[in-house]
């Protein structure tokens, strides 16, 4: 059974169709790349899955649950976490505080017990801190834990975004252009990180413009153009596919693609 399934998902803004009858499946353990020229509707698909936008039509099924109409803040407790383009993070918090904030959905103690400083709440806080430190080690930012997140170099901010998603212990992780703005060295490290994340048993859905990274890290790829799926297959199949070459060359995709 697929972990995530999109069934004829459609999104229109006014008269404009951003996503049209899109269907694809993500299998457990996949690193699935979602690619396409600018404006193809990739980020919109993310926003539809995580309920930042309402679907105009179609269904999103996650592990057998229909999550098409679930409230946005409930998505994380289903086991879906995401990052945003341009490393949207809590800029004025320290890295550790940002990570602890992202632990919110793991919380089992009620707000009142927490306020009363109960032993259980203290215990849980301790656990969360340890967990956050563990994730920070995993993404290689442990030494930066007390720095203000917004003051970190760009590549590190992107990692904080990924780290925040990881502390919530998702089963499916949606990464929206995690590599944008990184130098080649950082790109390689982040690709490795994505593989390591996948190695922890987390399924990854990746939107990325850097073709080398996508081809190198994904085991399957869905190509979109004008809000529709044009091809789906392994990186090898995708690279050879005439429709893909057409879509990219036709829309003036930059030289990075080749």
């Amino acid at each position: 059974m697929p972990i995530l399934e999109l069934q004829g998902v459609t999104k229109t803004f006014g008269g404009l169709t951003a996503v049209n009858e899109l269907s694809f499946e993500v299998q457990k353990g996949d690193i699935l790349g979602l690619i396409g020229p600018n404006g193809a509707g990739k980020t919109t698909v993310f926003n539809l899955i995580t309920r930042h936008l309402n679907c105009t039509g179609g269904k999103v099924i996650f592990q057998g649950h229909d999550i098409t109409n679930v409230r946005m803040d409930k998505i994380i407790s289903f086991g879906i976490a995401r990052t945003f383009q341009g490393s949207r993070i809590f800029r004025n918090l320290t890295v550790l505080e940002a990570m602890l904030t992202a632990c919110y959905s793991k919380r089992k103690t009620g707000l009142i017990l927490d306020l009363l400083n109960s032993a259980r709440a203290k215990n849980e806080m301790q656990q969360h801190t340890e967990h956050a430190i563990e994730i920070l080690k995993f993404i290689g930012l442990e030494e930066r834990k007390n720095d203000q997140a917004g003051n970190l170099p760009y590549a590190h901010q992107s990692l904080v975004g990924i780290g925040m998603a990881l502390v919530a212990e998702p089963q499916l992780l949606l990464l929206d252009e995690p590599i944008a703005g990184m130098n080649p060295q950082e790109t390689l490290e982040t690709m490795e990180l994505i593989r390591k994340i996948n190695g922890r048993g987390i399924t990854v859905l990746l939107v990325e413009h850097n073709m080398t990274a996508v081809m190198g890290v994904c085991n399957r790829i869905v190509v979109m153009n004008y809000g529709e799926k044009i091809v789906e297959g392994t990186p090898g199949e995708i690279m050879e596919h005439p429709a893909v070459i057409d879509a990219y060359l036709g829309s003036g995709f930059d030289a990075r693609a080749s």
């Binding site: 946005m72 803040d73 407790s77 976490a81 945003f84 925040m164």
Partner: peptide, 8 residues
């Protein structure tokens, strides 16, 4: 929005 993403 980010807060909402993390369940708040």
């Amino acid at each position: 929005v980010l807060a909402g993403t993390f369940g708040i």
